[in-house]
């Protein structure tokens, strides 16, 4: 990593454990070390149930690590991560608010006058391609439109860090690529630090600067870290045809494959 680039998120020996009962403790993630530089796009890939989302929740301050530390821009994280915006895997929009109100809420609760909040929310809806959908309620939107509103809702607050938990997981293959391109376009404007969790290796390589691989849980660890040197700005449709893309994919997959198999074997046992 570049020496001058400050570290946005730093997990140092972070261990996350859950109580399962009186005496049983499940260690989801063991001694994870991960640093995301400011402006860096990092993707975490791992087999299902390996604790990728757990790691993200630790970075968000939604979960406290059992051991180890979390530093956000070189300050220890206490409570929720106020520098971060979080895009959830499942529907997180407020169902009783219109798309416009959903986007504006982040500004409103920060004390910005409603008229100004709404005006800026309108601009953001336009940025994510939903200029005329402001008056729709979430149930009237498609899965992809949900994610667009979610992106606008998070980005309008201009967080320095963007945490994304398999945000495009529930979408169909084409919509995922379109959303990936939209994300890259928006990211290119001001290059926030991004921590992007996914189980889709192709998506990870196409989007990120760095791909981090996690082992199968329990006690998941970070077992690999690859730089993605594909040129930017990228178009996901094009990037996937790139020769280097395939070489990198093959290389990472050779490591990931074993973990995926372990993950399946364990979930079959359970």
């Amino acid at each position: 990593m570049n020496e001058k680039m400050p570290t946005a998120v730093a997990l140092e020996d972070a261990t996350v454990a859950f109580r399962l009962g009186e005496a049983r403790v499940y260690t989801a993630v063991e001694k994870a070390n991960l640093a995301v530089g400011a402006g860096e796009f990092v993707a975490i890939v791992g087999p299902t149930g390996c604790g990728k989302s757990t790691l993200l929740n630790v970075a968000a301050g939604l979960l406290k690590p059992a051991a180890g530390s979390v530093r956000i821009f070189d300050r220890p994280l206490l409570g929720l991560n106020r520098e971060a915006g979080y895009l959830f895997q499942t529907d997180a929009l407020f169902p009783w608010k219109t798309a416009l109100d959903n986007v504006a809420i982040g500004l409103e609760i920060a004390g910005i006058p409603r008229s100004e909040a709404l005006a800026r929310a309108n601009d953001w809806l336009a940025s994510v391609g939903l200029a005329h959908f402001g008056s729709r309620y979430p149930h009237m939107l498609s899965g992809g439109q949900h994610k667009r509103v979610g992106l606008a809702q998070v980005l309008i607050r201009n967080p320095k860090i963007l945490l994304m938990d398999e945000p495009f997981g529930p979408l169909d293959a084409q919509t995922r690529q379109v959303m990936g391109n939209l994300l890259l376009d928006l990211w290119n404007r001001d290059r926030k630090a991004v921590l992007f969790v996914t189980h889709d290796l192709e998506e990870a390589i196409a989007l990120a600067d760095r791909v981090v691989i996690m082992s199968a849980g329990p006690g998941a660890r970070i077992i690999g870290d690859w730089q993605v040197t594909l040129p930017r700005p990228r178009d996901i449709f094009e990037t996937r045809l790139n020769k280097d893309f395939h070489a990198l994919h093959r290389e990472i997959w050779s490591v990931l494959k074993g973990e995926v198999m372990k993950g399946y074997a364990q979930s079959a046992d359970a």
Partner: peptide, 14 residues
């Protein structure tokens, strides 16, 4: 919904 609640928190709601 836990997700909606967590979203509210992450958006900065008291």
């Amino acid at each position: 919904s836990h997700t909606v609640l967590a979203n509210g928190r992450m958006l900065g709601m008291s």
